[in-house]
C-alpha cells in the first residue's frame, strides 16, 4: 500500500477529479460535510497545522458567500426577519451555507492537489495523452521564468548604459517598453539556437514518445479501480435522486433509503481514502523506525 502522493500521477489526478465531482453536481448538506471533513483530514494528516492561514482565508470566503446569498435571494417560506424591507429567509441562508461549503471543500481538495501534483506529474499525465503537448508544457515552464530573469538582466544593463531613466512615469514606461523589446529580440534569437539543438537531437523525425519517471504498478491499478467504483456508487445515488435535496421554496430532503445509505458510505470511503493511506503509511514508518 502506498499513499496517494506516491501513487502514479494519473491516479492522483483522477482521485481529485473524482472526489470533487459529486459535490459539484449536488449540494447535499451531508455529502458536503463528508467532503469537507475528508479534505481537512487529508490536509492535516499530511502537513499538520501549516495550512491554517490559508484555511482561515477560505473560511472567510465561506462566510461571505453564506451572508451575501440571503441579501440578494429572497425566495423561501421561512422568513427570519426583514432587512431594509426585504425578507431574509432561512432557505436562502441554508443555500448560501451549502454553496460556501462546496466552494470551501473544492478549494481544500485543490490545495492538497497542488501540493501533491508537481509539474513533473502533470507532464507524465499529459505525456501519456500527447507527447507533443507535454513537451510544449515543459518548454513553456522553462521559458516563463527565464524570460523574467532576462528582463531583469536587461533592465540592469540598460540602466548601466545610461539608457534607462525612471525619473518620471512616461520615462519609466518608455524604459520598460525598451527592456521588453530587447528581451523579446533576445528570446527570438535564442529560439533559433534552441530549434537547432532540438533538430540536432532528432526532433520531428518521427513519432515522439514521452518519458516519465513514474511506473504504473498493480497497486496503482487497484487503487484506481477502488476510486472509480466508489465514484460510480456515489454517482448512482446522485443520479437516481436517492439523496435529492431542494432549497426553495422550502428545504426538503427526500426520504433516505438503502440506496442513500450506500451513497453516503461510498462517498465517505472515497473522501477519507487518502487520509487512511497517509495515516497507515505514517504508522508503518513509526513501527519500522522503532524497530531500527
Amino acid at each position: 500500500m502506498k499513499s496517494l502522493e506516491r501513487s502514479h500521477p494519473t491516479v492522483t489526478l483522477l482521485y481529485f477529479l473524482a472526489v470533487t465531482l459529486p459535490v459539484m453536481l449536488c449540494m447535499e448538506p451531508l455529502l458536503l460535510c463528508i467532503s469537507l471533513a475528508g479534505a481537512l483530514a487529508l490536509l492535516f494528516s499530511r502537513t499538520g497545522g501549516r495550512n491554517i492561514r490559508t484555511l482561515l482565508y477560505f473560511l472567510a470566503l465561506l462566510l461571505l458567500i453564506a451572508l451575501v446569498n440571503p441579501l440578494f435571494q429572497h425566495d423561501g417560506v421561512t422568513v427570519l426577519f426583514f432587512l431594509n424591507g426585504n425578507p431574509v429567509t432561512w432557505e436562502a441562508i441554508a443555500f448560501g451555507l451549502c454553496a460556501g461549503a462546496m466552494t470551501l471543500a473544492v478549494l481544500c481538495w485543490f490545495l492538497s492537489m497542488s501540493q501533491m501534483m508537481t509539474t513533473d506529474k502533470y507532464l507524465c499525465v499529459f505525456g501519456a495523452l500527447s507527447p507533443k503537448l507535454s513537451l510544449m508544457l515543459s518548454m513553456a515552464l522553462r521559458f516563463v521564468p527565464l524570460f523574467t530573469k532576462r528582463m531583469h538582466a536587461v533592465r540592469l544593463a540598460q540602466r548601466g548604459l545610461g539608457l534607462y531613466r525612471d525619473g518620471t512615469l512616461p520615462d519609466k514606461l518608455r524604459g520598460e517598453l525598451r527592456v521588453f523589446s530587447v528581451t523579446v529580440t533576445w528570446a527570438l534569437e535564442n529560439g533559433i539556437h534552441t530549434a537547432d539543438s532540438m533538430e540536432a537531437r532528432g526532433y520531428g523525425t518521427g513519432r515522439r514518445t514521452a518519458y516519465a519517471e513514474y511506473d504504473f504498478h498493480a497497486w496503482d491499478g487497484a487503487l484506481l479501480a477502488l476510486i472509480l467504483l466508489m465514484l460510480a456508487l456515489t454517482l448512482c445515488g446522485l443520479l437516481t435522486d436517492a439523496v435529492a435535496v431542494t432549497f426553495y421554496p422550502a428545504l426538503v430532503r427526500a426520504e433516505r433509503g438503502v440506496l442513500a445509505a450506500l451513497t453516503y458510505a461510498a462517498y465517505t470511503l472515497l473522501s477519507f481514502l487518502p487520509t487512511l493511506l497517509t495515516v497507515q503509511e505514517k504508522i508503518k514508518w513509526h513501527f519500522l523506525q522503532s524497530k531500527i
Binding site: T119, S138, R142, N190, S197, M198, R201, T205, Y211
Partner: peptide, 18 residues
C-alpha cells in the same frame, strides 16, 4: 540556448523521446 526543457531528467530523455 541548447537546453529545451525545464527539468534535468527531461533534457536527458529529450533526444531519445524524439
Amino acid at each position: 540556448e541548447q537546453i529545451v526543457t525545464d527539468k534535468v531528467w527531461h533534457e536527458l530523455a529529450f533526444g531519445l523521446e524524439s
